[in-house]
Amino acid sequence: MPIMEHKFKRPKSLKDADTHYCSGCGHGILHRLVTQAIDELGIRKRTIGVAPVGCAVVAYNYWDFDCAEAAHGRALAVATGMKRLRPDLVVFTYQGDGDLASIGLCETIHTANRGESLTCIFVNNACYGMTGGQMAPTTVIGQKTTTTPWGRDPKKGDGWPLKVSELLLNLEGVCLAVRCSLSSPKEILKTYQYIKKAFTNQTEGRGFSIVEVLSPCPVIWQKEPVEAMRWVEEHMRKFFPLGAMKDI
């Protein structure tokens, strides 16, 4: 028996690849959490991931299970088609705020309302990352983006930060709506537990689960990675309170 054992390994579901993500980006942590949960639940061989349009569009380059690409905002419709035909599979979507909360909000609400047995990982970084930092539905008040150069201002018609989890929690088909954060090790561990719960809900056929994850985007926010983590804590959490809104 070796005295030292290598415990912290790369999950099988996570490929040994360099990612295209910027330094300090939350996707790296979240990919790790999702793949670790899939490994731990032993569902890798029967999992399909649906990638969004956005920074995570090529998530399948890093995930080692079956994946499909969906058109912008349509991941949950694609996932619905798969899951209805193959209830034996575990199907999840991984979507950003532009994808899920703007162009795909109709699909999001109706998939949740039908109570599709799906898992939805919703990455909220308060901006459009891939297209260079435009205002997202989740951009916080006062936040400067390329399309709100003086800061998001509801008085100018920019609207308020859209609270997706709060929007979905009243729908009968939703069994889990929770908001987590990647801003500290403690919150990361909580996020992991809820991701696992969201997959277990699916394997037990309990309904629609959404895990909203507040995630840093240092390059677009023009902040150092550590500073970006702090910005999640100090600015995003004001508008987006953490915790399970619904967990049944």
Binding site: I48, V50, A68, A70, A71, R74, A77, V78, A79, T80, G81, M82, K83, R84, L85, E107
Partner: peptide, 8 residues
């Protein structure tokens, strides 16, 4: 898009 998923 549901048809897309079904075809997949």
């Amino acid at each position: 898009n549901m048809v897309f998923g079904a075809s997949c």
